[in-house]
Amino acid sequence: MTAAAERTDDRATTDVLAAAREQVLDRGVGLTEEQVLTVLRLADDRLDDLLALAHEVRMKWCGPEVEVEGIVSLKTGGCPEDCHFCSQSGRFPSPVRSAWLDIPGLVKAARQTADAGATEFCIVAAVRGPDARLLSQVREGIKAIRDSGNNIQIACSLGMLTQAQVDELVGMGVHRYNHNLETARSHFPQVVTTHSWEERWDTLRMVREAGMEVCSGGILGMGETDEQRAEFAVQLAELDPHEVPMNFLIPQPGTPYEQYEPIAGRDALRLVAAFRLAMPRTMLRFAGGRELTLGDLGAEKGMLGGVNAIIVGNYLTNLGRPAQQDLDMLADLKMPIKALSDTL
């Protein structure tokens, strides 16, 4: 690069952060796709400034509280879909075998989650969409959790829904529904061929209209370009979900993405900050893959770079770091954990 080109570059990057300060921080208006792309291409020596701005935006528009969540897999493996990142697809030679968690196991998982100080418990199933058996298991499970004296808020992630199933979940008291758009619309056909991005969008629309909180994010590091990352950020912003979980790909044995390299830590941090600047008011959650991509130090940087929610403990088929380690981190960062009384 010539010296002149470098200077132009410098000015452009200064400009995008200056513009973001006025537009996102002061006015609460998310970045455009083009602006997100410029942010994703900021040089490494601007990363700290970017993270600092994203943190300011989060503090101004969301506040200092962090929402802590636990998740559990009610039905593992054997899924008929072909999401190329997923060890639970029955179409790949993954070592993950099908398993059902029984009701006492579900009650125990909810108890562990509440005891870790979490206010959210998400029940997840590896399915295209729920059938009657799964829904009755969820219904019984929620009843058993309540009967055990646990009043943690319950979310579900059970795949694509019909309107009748949406209504049924609302009736069970499920207050939030997770259904990830996974990746940019233009990249989705490379990742999943058994259903479409638009089908996912339809479920999210029904969930919103029924009054449940919408939770939708995706996985980064699945071969998407920077342009597609920017595209994804603004597509999520357009959906305007209550929560966006950000996962970083953990290449799973036996899946088509087995040999993918995990995303670099600084790129993961740039993404976190860019997503915050695209969605100033949305709850942005650290989900799977942060342990591998960011390690302990990076997780802290992310919490100081726009993230305001985390999943603690283990994930669905992968292990996380112990919940206490995350709670200690939040205490060190002087970030209060959102209490159940704030959310009821």
Partner: peptide, 12 residues
């Protein structure tokens, strides 16, 4: 043999 594995928040 492939085992049936259940992961829960604080263990497996």
């Amino acid at each position: 043999r492939r085992m049936v594995v259940q992961v829960i928040p604080s263990g497996w």
